Simulated scan of single mutants.
Amino acid sequence: MRDYEKIRSAIIRGGTSKGVFILKNDLPADPESRDKVILSIYGGTDERQIDGLGGADSLTSKLAIINVSPRPDVDIEFTFGQVGIGTGTIDYNSNCGNILSGVGPFAVDEGLVAVQKPYTKVRILNTNTNTIIEAAVPVSSGKAVTKGNYTIDGVPGKGAKIVLNFLHADGSKTGKLFPTGNRKEVLHTKAGNFDVSIVDVAAPAVFVQAEQLGLNGTEMHTDLTAEQLHILEMIRSSAANKIGFVTRKEEATKVTPSSPKIVIVSPSQTYTNISGETIEQQTIHLTARAMSMQKMHKTFPVTGGICTATAAKLKGTVVYECSIHHHNDEFIIGHPSGSMEFSIRCKDNGQQVELDKTAVARTSRRLMEGYAYVPKELFWNEAESIY
């Protein structure tokens, strides 16, 4: 008798991230057993994840659980999991827009949605935030198209353009565009007081200007000291406490390590990216650095980017204060690997904000499909099989 079970899965690059995609029905229904199985797939508590499919990096230690939705207004339900590296935990408190870009193609290729040419519109419910995203997936011969001419910084080569439109994205997790009711406020931490804006569009995020941290805003992931990383996490933890994600700020790193996101913003600047290329000041509207699981994101998160680009259009926020403004929908953020373009259309009279469009384009590619092997005993809850 074999001592393992097989879980059908696919490894897919979505945007600048990579994750394992699994159908919900192929996982245990019991949440505790499910997470034990998932952690085994990724390599358990080993920081190298050598005995699993994780890549020992927060951008490649991601999970997508997929099922066909019973709701008439939605095609697919997508649950995102950020699998901790060496922590033995999975954070389900936030969405990931990069992994989201692989959900539409996955649904098409798995035959979970009716296919239409040349684009299939897949209505996706993100269960983490209870928001709906429409993905326009290019198709040919009944399958998602991979090849194309669209490029995104942080991914080599070109791919087929997938447009993600976040519907009613404000208050995605907290129910409010400004979770504390303020466009700008002071957070008090042991490291000092910081002017921040806490905004929730597609995902909640706390924004702080680089100069308040003693930074110039063009730092790379290797430039931040342990002390600076600690200060950033203190700010993020204080924000998590203030919006009710945790009862004590000291719990935030363990309980909700990926949400809210924290983003460092500064005016548009000329800098050299990770690949040694020059990003010219006049080609971007804002310079920003996002944190991912207590480390600097090597590119930029999609949901965090939607939130950043929207906050840049809202008067009174710390993001608005250092952004270049215009009347076009296009907004470009400069990040460590290059730049990222968003399409944001909103009306703001100072009292009420109406979001008409919050969209971004990505690419995706299925890298492999097959079975993940999981120890058989993980499918047993105490002495009783969960199946």
Rank of each mutant, 00 (worst) to 15 (best):
A10Q: 04
R8A: 10
R8H: 12
E382N: 09
E185F: 04
R13Y: 03
T308Y: 11
L213I: 07
P257A: 06
G97L: 06
I274E: 05
E382F: 11
N241V: 05
A252C: 01
D223S: 10
A136E: 15
A312R: 04
L167P: 10
T363K: 09
M1C: 10
D26Q: 07
V155C: 01
T358V: 14
T270H: 05
S140P: 09
K36S: 08
N193E: 12
N193I: 03
T146Q: 15
V163I: 13
C322T: 00
P28L: 04
P301V: 12
T225A: 07
H188W: 09
K315N: 12
R289V: 00
L187C: 01
A114N: 13
D153C: 01
A56L: 02
G181Y: 11
A205F: 05
S141F: 06
D57Y: 10
P118H: 01
R13D: 08
K24A: 15
V319P: 01
N98D: 07
F245T: 05
E227R: 11
G104D: 02
I333Q: 03
E251H: 15
I133F: 00
T287V: 07
T283L: 12
K298H: 11
L232A: 08
S33F: 06
P375G: 12
A240D: 03
G97E: 05
L187V: 14
P72L: 14
Y371A: 10
S323D: 04
A359F: 09
G104W: 11
T363L: 00
F21K: 03
V113H: 07
K347C: 08
S40N: 03
G14V: 09
R8S: 13
V68Y: 05
A144E: 09
A312F: 00
F245M: 01
K6I: 08
N98R: 09
P204R: 03
R345H: 09
V206A: 04
R362I: 10
G54E: 05
V83F: 07
V302M: 00
A135L: 02
P156E: 01
A309N: 01
K36F: 02
E280F: 14
G44P: 07
A135M: 08
L367G: 06
A210P: 05
G214L: 05
N241G: 14
G338N: 13
Y320M: 00
A359H: 10
G217M: 07
E211W: 11
P375W: 04
A312L: 06
V115A: 06
E384Y: 14
K117R: 05
G19Y: 05
G19N: 07
T310G: 13
E369S: 14
K376Q: 06
K117I: 06
D30L: 03
N328V: 13
V255I: 15
A361S: 15
G88L: 08
S101I: 03
G19W: 03
K347H: 13
Q116M: 09
M220L: 15
A311S: 02
A10R: 13
K143D: 03
T222Y: 10
G305I: 03
L213Y: 02
S17T: 04
R13V: 05
V20P: 01
Y371F: 14
D170Y: 03
Q352T: 05
G181K: 02
